[in-house]
Design a protein around this nucleic acid. Structure first.
Length: 225
DNA sequence: ATGCAGATAATCT
DNA sequence: GATTATCTGCATG
């Protein structure tokens, strides 16, 4: 039969700098339980002292500890008071770099992904296929990744529920790179990688400084007069 | 199609 | 107390 056997990626795949792993991750297939996703957009983040935009820039903390662990593990963080984002750790232990999984195409378990992505109360209309994992927080929901999965090993061991497979890498000419999304420092570092023309790639958003609430700025912010 | 504002809490200074 | 590796809904052209 035509059933293609997916080859699991070995740990050594991730034992490289994150900006080398990131573009190589495009087209690979991440499987978590019933849902499989082909990566179409990722971002690399560097280690302490070398990447101001990285969570590890100022060293090890309880939150980013997993990034200082062995490669091939999942780093899941919580942000904006409501979203989870998932990364894959790179380089040997103690380096603190990773690749943020920003978007992908659901290739298996779309019904599961869709129900996870459909809010209880809202959404009378059907969510477009391309939006199921278009953006890092949406991707985490679609794959069912949460805080409890922080530190999980993503290397196929024969028993784990999570693994990354070789998949079909895109045509080299279709891989594009540019500045990372939504960061306030290191804005020019071109460590965002995506597959050109793929509809599941998220729209680029530059960082917008959120203005403090009016109440918080009421004292002492008057210009000279 | 694009743009803005609000949501909402862990984390770090 | 400020910031945040974001998303959604509602507004307008």
């Amino acid at each position: 039969m035509g059933g293609r056997i997916l080859k699991p990626l070995p740990r050594s795949f991730f034992d490289r700098p994150s900006h080398e792993v990131a573009p190589d991750l495009l087209g690979r297939v991440l499987v978590h339980g019933p849902v499989a996703l082909r990566l179409t957009e990722v971002e690399a983040y560097g280690g302490p002292g070398e990447d101001p935009a990285a969570h590890t820039y100022r060293g090890k903390t309880p939150r980013n500890a997993v990034m200082f662990g062995p490669p091939g593990h999942l780093y899941v963080y919580f942000t904006y008071g409501m979203h989870y984002c998932a990364n894959l750790v790179c380089l040997p232990e103690d380096h603190g770099s990773a690749v943020l999984l920003r978007a992908g195409e659901i290739v298996e378990g779309a019904d599961t992904a869709r129900s996870r992505r459909t809010a209880p109360g809202a959404a009378a209309r059907r969510l477009p296929e391309r939006d199921l994992a278009r953006g890092p927080a949406r991707l985490a929901v679609a794959l069912g990744l949460h805080r409890e999965h922080n530190g999980l090993d993503a290397i196929h061991t024969g028993s784990g529920a999570l693994a990354v497979y070789a998949g079909e890498p895109p045509e080299p000419g279709l891989v594009r790179s540019g500045p990372r999304t939504g960061i306030s420092t290191a804005k020019d570092v071109p460590w965002r990688f995506w597959i050109d023309g793929d509809p599941t790639v998220s729209p680029y958003k530059a960082h917008v400084p959120r203005r403090r609430s009016a109440a918080a700025t009421s004292v002492g912010d008057t210009p000279s007069s």
